[in-house]
Design a protein around this nucleic acid. Structure first.
Lengths: 251, 251
DNA sequence: GGGTTTCATTTTGCATTCATTTTTTTCTTT
DNA sequence: AAAGAAAAAAATGAATGCAAAATGAAACCC
């Protein structure tokens, strides 16, 4: 039973009525068939159904989604613009493999975006929103104490997402979401598992984040968030280095 | 004689010779026909050949660029994802009109990106690069003294571009270029003309930018650059308000 | 046997075609 | 004549078709 994204849509009618059709583009409002397919394809890629550097098989995906090549290729062009795949002239599309430099760049850009989000959030965040973030923070702390990586990570993601949301800038949120999807292919989640110290450090950084947010210290929060991501990046780099060493000793 | 982007390409071989092919994204690898057309269409839109909110006439553009609808529509999907146009189901594409909120968001995101660029630049900028930026800065100052808006603005753009380049992050540069293209449709250039004070203030801010860069004070430069853009935004908002008032008194 | 060359198959890129939907024009009807 | 209904025209969205390029495989040569 092939998924058939199209059928799901045919039930609906109106679509596209309210404002935010365009901005997000990422995972926001599917709106049209094209948007629907785009989201489905993006998920398909982000979930890692295709290996890094693998060719994107047009014919196969057409069957998979029950459409012809035209809309599929339109979606591929968009995904290429987003950086998920790359187009080789006369050679179709490949899943874009991120090298160490790409990751470094992506982490820094994510850091810059979160940094901005923190700064903007301080300008307009309500006490209620802060309280909500604190709630998740404490939940995360409990996961930390219990050494529950999965739960911790969920909360972590949620907090960062909430800060971006609190910035009240849909353009920023969309851009952030796009980059998050791009980086999701590499699981930087399991980093902390190998490095107990980093986990504790990250927890302390989150304390500082919340503290700065409570005081609405925008510039300070901006710095902390950037450094937080920078440290995350370093941990990820550290990990990939040790992974490479392992691979070498194994091979 | 219709332009025929294709012909231009067929002559050349290497491509990518003179760096800045176009505003955004496609600056990396034009290579294919699709990329070429995409850049051409983007320029066509950014240059304001179509009015805000106007329908994007597929047939006309096909003739204009000498291609069929298929590649054109692929390009349109990408431009929609970039935020330059918006797609209405069964009603084609329209030039996206930016309202006050959109502009506010875009300015802030640009501010965040420049802020990040400054921070990263401080980590790795060479003395030679700083000297080069200083050179352009002084050139800009001479334009300022001569009240040469056009020259001043060129230098201004160039300095910001150089800072982004000095950050050594291609992903950031591409994202920055994309947003710059998106905002270029609104000419925020002429802002200073009406507000002599803002011009002087901007000049002083640029002094501070250079000072922080010389000292490699990343966090500080980050703050200054964000505030610089924020002030630019406020000036633009001020201007649009007075314009609206004018329009009202005239109508 | 290793390497090259030729040729069939597949894939890609774009044009064309077709079914719908929207928009414009024309024709009623009051 | 104005408002509304019906029909014609144009547009959009997606499928199909076709030439050129790339990939893979068999034949060929040394």
């Amino acid at each position: 039973m092939t998924s058939m994204v199209l059928d799901a849509r045919k039930g609906g009618v109106a679509e596209a009525g309210p404002g935010e059709t365009s901005v997000g583009e990422a995972a926001r409002v599917p709106a049209s068939l094209h948007g629907e397919l785009l989201a489905a394809l993006r998920d398909y890629l982000v979930e890692g159904n295709l290996a890094d550097g693998a060719r994107v098989p047009e014919r196969l995906l057409c069957d998979r989604f029950g459409i012809s090549r035209t809309p599929l290729r339109e979606a591929l062009k968009v995904l290429a613009a987003e950086g998920l795949i790359e187009l080789l002239p006369n050679r179709g599309a490949r899943v874009r493999a991120l090298n160490a430099d790409d990751l470094r760049e992506l982490f820094d850009v994510m850091g810059g975006l979160e940094s901005l989000a923190g700064r903007l959030a301080c300008e307009r965040v309500s006490d209620e929103e802060v309280a909500e973030i604190e709630r998740v923070h404490h939940e995360m702390y409990r996961f930390y104490l219990r050494r529950d990586m999965h739960g911790y990570f969920q909360c972590n993601q949620e907090i960062h997402r909430m800060i971006v949301a609190a910035a009240g800038n849909a353009t920023l949120a969309a851009t952030y979401a796009s980059f998050a999807g791009r980086i999701r292919r590499v699981r930087y989640s399991a980093n902390l598992a190998t490095d107990r110290d980093r986990w504790g450090e990250a927890m302390r950084e989150h304390e500082a984040i919340l503290d700065a947010l409570r005081r609405r210290a925008g510039s300070e929060l901006s710095d902390i968030l950037f450094m937080h991501l920078r440290n995350k990046r370093k941990a990820a780099e550290q990990r990939s280095v040790s992974e490479a060493a392992e691979a070498e000793s194994e091979g």
